[in-house]
Amino acid sequence: MNETAFKRLKDLPSQRLLGTGTPLCAGCGGLEALHQIYDILGGRSVFVNAAGCMTLLAVYPFTPFRGAWLYTAMAGAPAGAQGVRDALDLLLAKGRLPPAEDLTVVALTGDGVAYGMGLSATSSAIERGLDFLYIVYDNEGYGNTGQQYSEATPLGAKTATSLRGFAGRKKDLFAIWTAHRPAYAATVIGAEPLDLARKLEKALSLKGPRLLLALAPCPTGWDFDPKDTVEVGRLAVRTGVWPLKEYVDGKVTHTRLPHPRLPVEDYLRTQGRFRHLFEPVRDEALLARIQAQVDDYWAGVT
């Protein structure tokens, strides 16, 4: 990354553009990432949202946005983004909209949509080359309904529908996106705001389908004290559980190489959803499997 406006933390915007007073949980890791994004993106944007926790950002008559917002339904945010983008383009092309009135089109969904119900709409929007930014707040479960497992739930996590720990494996949405050869894709986290800012900066400099996939530590769904949101996020990065990376021009680059890479236990121990791995007795086999998944991933990173 060169010529970034964000060389140091001090370069981050000091003005908060997303309004306070939203009904999201105290300590929400998704909201943390979203306000960091909105501080840079600003109000010349239209957020097309799908059913999830963040549907409640705007509850009539209260909105935290300076610009525009459209709630669709669960499966269709990328299709809604398509309609808005196409309409703006048509109005611009026909001279019915001054260029100053144009908006950046953003799809905003949780992991339930991004990894599951909305994936078909997403795949097709990328295939059509839709010029939009897709922000995912990934809290690894259907959080808005009380944290049932989703296709983003990691191995071993206890959810309301996997009381003994989730037996499956977290789907690799980043790889699914990059297989479509989008303009840009990146993983981010609110605990690393400078990394997030640089990636958003790059995404905004490009046209076409762009992904910011934010891991969203969730005090309510993951069972930890809200004050620990940043610490949990930081550990996700330092243990290698959440690799920070970006895809541009056909190439994946890791923007953080955790050295030394901490054992995954350090991350898992912070959250009640993994407590059963440690008590009443340590589940050595499962801990080893989770560690091995992470080790395997990083063995492939050169």
């Binding site: 097309v48 459209l70 669709t72 339904a73 499966a75 269709g76 990328p78 299709a79 809604g80 983004a81 398509q82 309609g83 808005v84 196409d86 309409a87 703006l88 383009d89 048509l90 109005l91 026909k94 078909s120 709409a121 795949s123 097709s124 059509r128």
Partner: peptide, 28 residues
């Protein structure tokens, strides 16, 4: 016809795009 036709991947997406475009102010 001075229009843009976009094939979506489903009727669910088609209706979403249709209404989103109408909500942005074009005739759909």
């Amino acid at each position: 016809m001075a229009a843009r036709l976009v094939t979506l991947e489903s009727e669910h997406a088609m209706l979403t795009a249709a209404a989103a475009a109408a909500a942005t102010g074009v005739r759909v």
